[in-house]
Amino acid sequence: MIEATGLTKHYGRTVAVDNLSFTVGEGRVTGFLGPNGAGKSTTMRMILGLDSPTSGDVRIDGQHYRDLHQPLRTVGALLDAKWVHPNRSARAHLRWLAAATKLPRSRIDQVLDLVGLGAVANKNAGGFSLGMSQRLGIAAALLGDPRVLLFDEPVNGLDPEGILWIRKFMHQLADEGRTVFVSSHLLSEMAQTAQDLVVIGRGKLIYQGTVDEFIANATESTVLVRSPTLEKLGEHLLAAGAGISDDGDALRVSGMDSAAIGELAATRQIVLHELSPQVGSLEQAFIHLTGDTVEYRTEEPALGTTEEGPTA
């Protein structure tokens, strides 16, 4: 279990992480979600004792990382797949990590086979593709058979096959009862990988809970209705307390589900041509929640007002 309380990190005058409190439970994959620059990596570095918090505290199973004895036996982390010496072989990279944790050499071959790098174990890590580097990083994280695993953007830059492999792998790790904490800036990825979510924006906690709840809360579902007597229907819907917005030749109804709208139409003897529930996308939900907290926002381009318009 990972427990953060009031975690804060300042870099000069920049506040990277702002009074962040959350818990990551065992036996589940917890997604750590936020836009780029939200403070995910900084938080992970603080969990692992690489960066010191300006204030606040984060513990793994009740202990600070830097107080753990042979921490690789408790926590495995993949923060950046490129944290290897390019002229050192994959096996040698794992060999010194294993030596630091007093693990038998046989464990090196086990994890290499587990991630499918057995055949290239003696090749220099500098020649590895991103996918292979990620696998080596995962092998290093798993070396000490840890209870807690942290992955920072593990699917970034991977091909679909690699993404699928990592996704399955994380579920397997969680099913074995481990704590899996994985960051991403892609909600759709998290929706398929994680059961729980910790969502941050600009270093602040936005949401903590299950993925399903997050999507249900964040996506406002509407119903699209079409009818030859749209105006009449609209009046009745408003009277019944629903919100409506005009959508061309249809109405977008919020605050009332399709069953209630259908019954209302039937009692009022209004003919319906279409009655279709609209579910908001995950991306909309994410943007809806983190919209105010994106650090590097692009201005909407004002089309047609530029001076360098087409001259022909």
Binding site: L48, G49, L50, Y65, R66, D67, L68, P71, L72, V75, A77, L79, D80, K82, W83, V84, H85, P86, L97, A100, T101, A140
Partner: peptide, 18 residues
């Protein structure tokens, strides 16, 4: 310095927090 350059120093401090 190569440990800093390739960030293996971080991997080292993860394995040996002291």
């Amino acid at each position: 310095t190569t440990e800093y350059r390739f960030s293996t120093i971080r991997a080292t401090f993860l394995a040996v927090p002291n």
